[in-house]
């Protein structure tokens, strides 16, 4: 018996090793949501991100000069916009008080820097230098001054990994800002698209797309991009709306984390409604 196994091993050891490793990989693939796996991952990337952050800073310095120039120009433009917005703000407050509408609260933003990027065509992720010690939790939106960048996926004490909008595993509810039409946004590996949009929906090229308040992930409207192209899907019954994102994930360096997860009070209310 032993001789038989020995013969089989000697003849097919390469294939046996391959087969066992493939089986291990497949079983790990099915365990991605297992808390133990999440814990090991948080420990691993937390440890490695400490080294990566130092290394990334060194390479980033060369890009800072160009970025500063762009930011100075943007700052000047923003200053004019802020001035205009102040005017609108005063008017808005007055009108709201006249109508008796409850005012919205300011949103808590935490600034952070990207310390590494794992780029592939389908699964883009970024590692940022803020973690659970700063109060970050999975599900919080990551944004830049241009728009949405991604969603926090996992946190260690000092670092977090976020799925960017160019990650096939991230699907978001978005809406057309002007026409108030909702849809599901996803990255199909080549482009950002709003899928399964009825052909009767009135989307136009150039329309602004923001996250929808009905999203179970992002509770506030954050700019995502503009409609770049409208095409039929393969069935011919629905449209695919191609979106050009405001923020280019490849070039973003500094981000903000919106320290909000979807409103617990709203969740409870909705759950109570469903449980009735």
């Amino acid at each position: 018996m032993f001789k038989l196994f020995s013969n089989v091993w000697n003849q097919f050891k390469e294939y046996l090793v391959l087969l066992s490793l493939v089986l291990i990989s497949l079983s790990i693939l099915t365990q991605n949501n297992n808390p133990q796996v999440q814990k090991v991952r948080a420990l691993a990337f937390g440890g490695f991100a400490t080294v990566t952050s130092v290394f990334y800073d060194v390479f980033n310095i060369t890009q800072l000069k160009n970025e500063n120039q762009v930011l100075r120009k943007l700052n000047a433009e923003m200053m004019i916009q802020v001035s205009m917005l102040r005017e609108y703000g005063i008017l808005n407050r007055e009108l709201k008080s006249m109508l008796g509408i409850k005012d919205t609260t300011s949103l808590p933003l935490l600034p952070a820097t990207i310390v590494s990027k794992s780029l592939s065509i389908t699964q883009n992720t970024i590692t940022i230098n803020a973690g659970s010690n700063e109060g970050i939790k999975p599900g919080m939106p990551v944004l830049s001054y241009r728009g949405l960048v991604g969603i926090i996926q996992t946190c260690s004490e000092n670092f977090s990994i976020a799925r960017t909008i160019k990650n096939v595993d991230l699907k978001l509810t978005v809406k057309n800002e002007n026409k108030r039409l909702n849809g599901i946004l996803k990255w199909d590996g080549e482009k950002l698209v709003i899928v399964d949009v009825p052909r009767t929906y009135d989307f136009d090229v150039g329309d602004r797309i923001v996250t929808s308040e009905i999203s179970s992930i992002i509770p506030v409207p954050i700019p995502v991009g503009i409609v770049a192209k409208i095409e039929e899907d393969k069935t011919g019954l629905l449209n695919l709306i191609q979106i050009k994102p405001f923020e280019e994930v490849l070039s973003v360096e500094n981000v903000f984390i919106l320290m909000l997860v979807e409103n617990a009070e709203k969740d409870n209310l909705e759950l109570n409604f469903y449980n009735r």
Partner: peptide, 19 residues
């Protein structure tokens, strides 16, 4: 583990590539 990808996806593809 360190990049945040689907755990096992790179493992499977690099195993076959190495083979």
């Amino acid at each position: 583990l360190i990049s945040g990808n689907l755990v096992g996806s790179n493992m499977l593809s690099l195993t076959v590539a190495g083979f």
